[in-house]
């Protein structure tokens, strides 16, 4: 939010309405007139309630480089998630249960609120780690198998693969 200014309210409202409407069209997968009209009205109501929190930049956020890095992020994230899932599955089926749980902390370099939310959710979705709390730029992470406790090293271990790409999208 610091690096780019907010879009004006009508623009953000329009942006939210368009996004909700597209999701509706994709979900119903039809162009029948009654469905489309219902979707437009529902999207209007939803946008009226949620546009202030739904988007900050409006259309300024849609850039080719952003789309590209988002795509890279999703692929990277899916890969890490599958890898981590296998890791947890291995721990669960090992008879001796090789776990060393604990709550560790690290500091993020991200300043944008949306970016922080995406990072927190990504950490939560990759098994073995989840976000217990975010206070300003400190993350408290519950880790199923703690190997390092120093915040710097924790950052390198958990957050860096995500943050590298998030910094490119949001700054």
């Amino acid at each position: 939010m610091q690096s780019k200014s907010l879009a004006s309210k009508p623009v953000r409202f329009l942006y939210s309405w368009i996004v909700f409407f597209i999701v509706w069209l994709a979900f119903t997968s039809t162009l029948a007139l009654p469905e489309v009209i219902t979707g437009a009205v529902v999207a209007l109501i939803l946008a009226a309630f949620s546009y202030e929190t739904f988007t900050g930049w409006g259309f300024k956020g849609i850039k080719l480089s952003n789309l590209w890095w988002s795509f890279v992020y999703v692929i990277n994230f899916l890969w890490l998630m599958v890898k981590a899932n296998f890791n947890v599955a291995r721990i669960v089926v090992t008879p001796s249960l090789p776990i060393n749980p604990g709550i560790v902390e690290f500091e993020t370099k991200l300043t944008n609120e949306y970016a922080k939310m995406v990072l927190a959710n990504s950490i939560t979705l990759t098994p073995g780690t989840f976000t217990v709390d975010v206070v300003d730029n400190r993350y408290y992470i519950h880790w199923l198998d703690v190997t390092v406790t120093d915040p710097e090293e924790v950052y390198k271990e958990i957050a860096e693969p995500f943050e590298r790409i998030l910094l490119k999208i949001f700054n």
Partner: peptide, 14 residues
């Protein structure tokens, strides 16, 4: 309180 082996709990301090 979380169950820990080596008492790693940074959140408790906060």
């Amino acid at each position: 309180r979380p169950w820990t082996k080596e008492d790693i709990d940074a959140y408790a301090q906060y």
